[in-house]
């Protein structure tokens, strides 16, 4: 047999890509969700400017994830996409609208309010769809013989609506702490004010989801309660992050709320992964069941090892160039 377990390497790469996407597109989607509630139009300009240089780079991770899944774990691609058919459409439609709104709002004057709505609406729909995907993932998918056999709206249940709303709140929290980091004055005050209520909402939803999950899914219940092991470290760390957000907002720290929110997301994400590992299409298929041929995984891996460092370098450079506060009237366009 082959000396490397490529499926494991690919699981790591895809897992890394997903959390990169969630963290990075998360805050710019969050800014979109918060958009209609901003104090005034000048604040909206600043909000949009704060994410304008980086948002499309953030979305590259989504496209890369889609193509990478087809190449490395085709079963995930060919079960999740049919199962989430309507949700995928809403997600893509939302992303398209907000993407175009980014471009045209800066150039528009009289039609600007339309682009405002496209940006906020697109961000909200896309975020909700992503949250519902997470919920559907916890629920599992009805499959037979490596094919999805459930209905069109199986993914839409009270549980997934809740996770969708949770994702909205979570992304909004990433958005508000990003604004704390990147803005000042009245807009930053507003971001400080809304962060604590958003955090409370996130914790309530996460709490309900956590209590509900063992009822939705037997396997998770088994894993959580059969043995007391390291798995419990993750929610504890997530709660510590939540406390850190609360504390740093009260002390009006600039960067810590955003860092702690990222931590909250990372530990929740790891908790989800550990609860499900090694099942990648729950409840039936593991990463090894879902893998493509060894040669195919290897063929793409070689290219990826060359390009990913370049994308990471470019991404880091972009954030470095745009470091510091975004001020009113300082559009980068």
């Amino acid at each position: 047999m082959h000396s490397f377990d490529l499926a494991l390497i690919w699981a790591f790469i895809i897992g890394f890509g997903v959390i990169m996407y969630v963290l990075m597109d998360g805050f710019d989607l969050g800014v979109g969700i918060l958009f209609p509630f901003a104090p005034d139009e000048a604040s909206r300009d600043v909000m949009m400017n704060s994410v304008a240089p980086v948002w499309d780079g953030n979305e590259t991770w989504l496209v890369l994830g889609g193509a990478g899944l087809l190449a490395a774990f085709p079963l995930v691609y060919t079960i999740l996409l049919p199962a989430l058919y309507i949700g995928v459409f809403l997600l893509l439609a939302g992303l398209i609208f907000r993407g175009v709104a980014f471009e045209f709002r800066f150039k528009a004057r009289t039609s600007r309010y339309l682009w405002n709505w496209a940006f906020a609406g697109g961000s909200t729909v896309a975020s909700f769809a992503q949250g519902a995907v997470v919920g559907a993932y916890i629920q599992g998918f009805e499959t037979a013989n490596k094919v999805y056999v459930g209905g069109a709206l199986d993914w839409l249940t009270p549980f997934t609506v809740l996770t969708g709303l949770g994702m909205l709140a979570g992304y909004a929290l990433l958005g508000s702490t990003w604004l704390i980091l990147k803005t000042e004055g009245e807009l930053q005050d507003w971001a400080y004010r809304i962060t604590t209520p958003l955090l409370a909402t996130v914790l309530v939803v996460f709490g309900i989801v956590s209590v509900w999950t063992p009822f939705v899914n037997d396997m998770v219940r088994e894993r959580w309660f059969s043995t007391i092991d390291v798995i419990w470290v993750l929610p504890v760390l997530a709660l510590l992050c939540a406390f850190q957000i609360f504390r740093s907002v009260r002390r009006r720290f600039n960067g810590m709320p955003f860092v702690a929110t990222m931590g909250l997301f990372i530990f929740t994400y790891l908790g989800l992964l550990v609860s499900r590992w090694p099942y990648v299409v729950p409840p039936n298929y593991t990463i090894w069941d879902a893998s493509s041929a060894y040669d195919s995984q290897l063929f793409l891996l070689l290219g990826l090892l060359f390009v990913i460092p370049i994308i990471l370098t470019y991404t880091a450079w972009t954030y470095w160039v745009f470091r510091g506060k975004v001020r009113a009237g300082e559009g980068y366009h």
Binding site: L70, L75, T78, L80
Partner: peptide, 24 residues
């Protein structure tokens, strides 16, 4: 994936890397 999942599944070993290389 959404509309041609049987095709995607059957041809993933070839099509997956090729389309991914295009994205890269």
């Amino acid at each position: 994936g959404t509309n041609w999942s049987n095709f995607a599944q059957a041809s993933a070993n070839f099509l997956g890397p090729v389309l991914s290389y295009e994205v890269l």
